[in-house]
Design a protein around this nucleic acid. Structure first.
Lengths: 343, 343
DNA sequence: CTGAAAGCGCTAACAG
DNA sequence: CTGTTAGCGCTTTCAG
């Protein structure tokens, strides 16, 4: 069996509680005693039992991070950022993947929720109503979802969408399309709305495609619909969809950017590696990972003189951070060719 | 506060232990009582406290999965497979990322190890010696690492490498190279050895490059070295390195597959999406994820009439499963052009 | 500064 | 079949 506090206590001739203090609150123990205890603990190879500690303190020093799909290149940078930031504060991150399934998401919030001090939900697919019901009283930070009940980190995809429409307009495109993502995606609706507004402001036509599954296959399957709209410029829900779209267009004899200009969202590794190189709206994923963890830890460890308020919610409502986006122009967008030269 | 067993007991007029039984071992409780208790529990919204349960039983129903780098497209399919398989058995998977850092790996094995019933280590970078010292008595399954101490799932990359050399030889290439991966990678050394053997058997020259960081940048940086060897065919440690190599070669004016043929390893999404489409050794990642979890759960829950043996180790040594690989020929390999036409 | 005692929420013998 | 009794390993009052 593993060595416990009692073993250390026995071996160093003090009481268990003294050992506990020497380990957890060293300043409450006389230097001499402390050093002896620590030495014995080290010698015996004592490792505190995480579960027991969690049971008494109610804290786990774990954070949960729930994402829709780890295979989606949008997530890894955010995950890594969250992990490194958490480690900095002495927290361990538990990652879980919902497979884009709201039911799995709900289940995970419950299961994971019990073993962590707080949860970061990235691009949740659950409705706000279900979210707040499911969360219990656990501190929760939402990424790319607005909610009054929880602290929130938003990426300003609307601004990116506006830039994309302007870019396409400047290239001479008059008929645009936007491929929206899965139901429940805040990013998707932001994207659509901003694109609609920007297109309307410039008198451009805008067709809405979707909901499209946020994968390459989803994009490929949507290529037919896209061509039917007659759009020559399209903004895809994310880079994966954009790449799939390009594939699907090629299969139908339409070239990118020759016949259709395609803009992705994310600036993911996939978009950088695919050919033609993808023009895309860069999302601040790393910054978001950092911000989300900072916010969460703030909620978990009240900054000091906090009243007895609800977890994380400051007086004026939950914190909300909005991070900027940018348009990265690469090779998948080009000036509209003369109508005559199409097909 | 959350509702506990005692609350349910009180409200249903039975003892705590009866409630516990009704929940955990229903067949030990009279139907009537059970139903009443269950009804009350449901009504009160009782949720068992995971931590407390773990403390008494010593089991968490959690599995740990440690990978080198979630951003590497090799891992996601394996992770997803492991997760779905685990869920099937009522286990939850905790995923952690070592960032290719052996120290972080060691730390994670310890931290994560305390909160799970078993660990799957995918492509560990730690030496076997350190691994077995660090693991404690926790059931551990290794993927792509051979060890007498632990159950193991291997991918037959050596076979794939042989096929790749044959393929390159058939295309007329006489000078080959292999880019090996990070130190401590079992896959990398298998790849190198098999390539050396296959090349020698056919009288082909083979240069060894590396260690190369297992990323796109690593590949790009290695392009110069590759050209210096004069090889016209190369097998890269993985798809990421292959893609980077292609990039780096292009920057130096060498075309793929015109001047150099490149073979990757993994058959990852990245390799499928990059252009030219990558010829690659397909790794059985999904199967490996399933197999690893199956093996692990077997070690955690002894199949019944198991003696009092060490965790997971059957009489004749630890289990070892080897999964097959295949060569997928796409566009990054082509017949050797006449020397005159090069450069 | 240190020891004693209580208890976190649950399971697991052991009686009845 | 159900109640009683002990803890799991740790932290945390409360005394002294």
């Amino acid at each position: 069996m593993a060595v416990t506090l009692r073993d250390v206590a026995r071996a160093s001739g003090v009481h268990v509680s003294t050992v506990s203090r020497a380990l957890s609150t060293p300043h409450l123990v006389r230097a001499e005693t402390r050093e002896r205890v620590l030495a014995v603990a080290a010698e015996l190879g004592y490792r505190p039992n995480h579960t027991a500690r969690a049971l008494t303190t109610g804290r786990t020093r774990n954070l949960g991070l729930i994402v829709a799909d780890i295979a989606n290149p949008f997530f890894p940078p955010l995950i890594k950022a969250a992990q490194s930031r958490a480690r900095l504060h002495g927290y361990q991150v538990f990652l879980a993947d919902t497979d884009e399934n709201p039911r799995a998401e709900e289940e995970l919030i419950r299961t994971l929720g019990q073993q962590v001090d707080g949860l970061v939900l990235v691009s949740p697919r659950l409705s706000n109503a279900v979210l707040s019901r499911t969360g219990g009283d656990l501190p929760v930070v939402l990424v790319n979802r607005r909610s009054r009940a929880h602290a929130t980190v938003l990426m300003d995809v609307a601004h990116g969408a506006t830039l994309a429409v302007e870019h396409l307009a400047a290239l001479g495109h008059r008929r645009l399309a936007v491929a929206t993502g899965p139901k429940g995606s805040w990013t998707g609706s932001q994207l659509r709305r901003a694109a609609e507004r920007a297109a309307a402001a410039r008198g451009l036509a805008l067709s809405v495609l979707g909901p499209v599954p946020p994968t390459e296959d989803g994009g490929t399957a949507a290529a037919g619909d896209l061509l039917r709209t007659g759009a020559t410029g399209v903004i895809a829900y994310n880079d994966l969809v954009a790449v799939g779209l390009i594939e699907g267009l090629a299969a139908r004899g339409a070239g990118v950017p020759g016949d259709v200009s395609v803009v992705g969202v994310d600036d993911s590794a996939t978009g950088r590696l695919s050919r033609p190189r993808l023009t895309t709206i860069a999302m601040p994923t790393t910054a978001a990972g950092h911000a989300a963890v900072d916010l969460l830890i703030q909620a978990i460890e009240p900054p000091d003189g906090e009243g007895g308020g609800t977890a994380g919610a400051a007086a004026g409502g939950a914190a909300e951070t909005t991070l900027g986006t940018a348009l990265i122009v690469r090779e998948s967008t080009a000036p509209l060719e003369h109508p005559a030269s199409r097909l």
